[in-house]
Design a binder for these strands. Structure first.
Length: 255
DNA sequence: AGTAACTTTCCTGATT
DNA sequence: CAATCAGGAAAGTTAC
């Protein structure tokens, strides 16, 4: 059951998710406050969503967190460069980060890559990563005073890290805000869904796996292997799949 | 270090 | 014709 509630309960909006106080202060200036889409009904905080699925608002929340926690100088950050979705943010190179935020950009890039590869648990989970953060910050004359265990969450173990394709697909289906019409339910009760944007799906999966050579052809081959194990069942229609008896966490009444 | 499960890559051929 | 589906084969990756 635990793994079926992944993104929605990944992190409660508590502790370090101290809201928009300093953010508002920082960006009360119009020119640094580009309009981004209004938060939808699905009002998630950035920590509850994988970076690739962040909305522009999530990206801003993340920047705010970084500024607050790592004492980054917000004046160094060109916020119009970060008026992007999570998908776009994840495709930015280190150079682009530096261009957008100088030395802070380097640090932001480092933090983002760690979140992407290790989940939010990288903040606390191992001494190694803590040391890595400290080393990195030290070598760049940045403060790490904000990185404290109490800033994080004991329950931050989730499937963010889980890289199984079917779970990725399931979680995307369960996140209407993030999936951008890439996947859609055809029969919610029976677990039948359709791949609407096959290339986008492959791209997103490729980003998750850090593999820019991923294609829908290859992704679909992996999906077909699931027929054997009962994770998926065959539906004789193009781009249509159905969760099988061994898939879990997708059913509405069991979430 | 070995293994098994899972994923990626490539391929041939069929279907839509 | 292009996109997709079906799987076999083999190599690569990851978790334990």
């Amino acid at each position: 059951m635990l793994d079926s509630v992944t993104h929605s309960t990944f992190l409660p909006n508590t502790s370090f998710c101290d809201p928009l106080m300093s953010w508002t202060d920082l960006f009360s200036n119009e020119e640094y406050y580009p309009a981004f889409e209004h938060q939808t009904a699905c009002d998630s905080y950035w920590t509850s969503v994988h970076p690739e699925y962040w909305t522009k608002r999530h990206v801003w929340e993340w920047l705010q967190f970084c500024c607050d926690q790592y004492k980054l100088d917000a004046n160094c950050i060109s916020f119009c460069h970060f008026n992007v979705s999570g998908l776009q943010l994840c495709s930015m190179t280190q150079e682009e980060f530096v261009e957008a935020a100088g030395i802070c950009g380097e640090y932001l890039y480092f933090i983002l890559q760690n979140i992407r590869s290790q989940g939010y648990s990288f903040f606390t989970d191992t001494e190694e990563t803590k040391a890595a953060i400290k080393d990195y910050a030290d070598s760049n004359c940045l403060k790490t005073s904000g990185i404290k265990s109490q800033d994080c969450h004991s329950q931050s173990r989730t499937s963010l890290q889980s890289s199984h394709l079917w779970e990725f697909v399931r979680d995307l289906l369960l996140s209407p805000e993030e999936n951008c019409g890439i996947l859609e339910w055809e029969d919610r009760e029976q677990g039948i869904f359709r791949v609407v944007k096959s290339e986008a799906l492959a791209k997103m999966w490729g980003q998750r796996k850090k593999n820019d050579r991923m294609t829908y052809e290859k992704l679909s081959r992996a999906l077909r292997y699931y027929y054997k194990t009962g994770i998926l069942e065959r539906v004789d229609r193009r781009l249509v799949y159905k969760f099988g008896k061994n898939a879990h966490g997708w059913q509405e009444d069991k979430l």
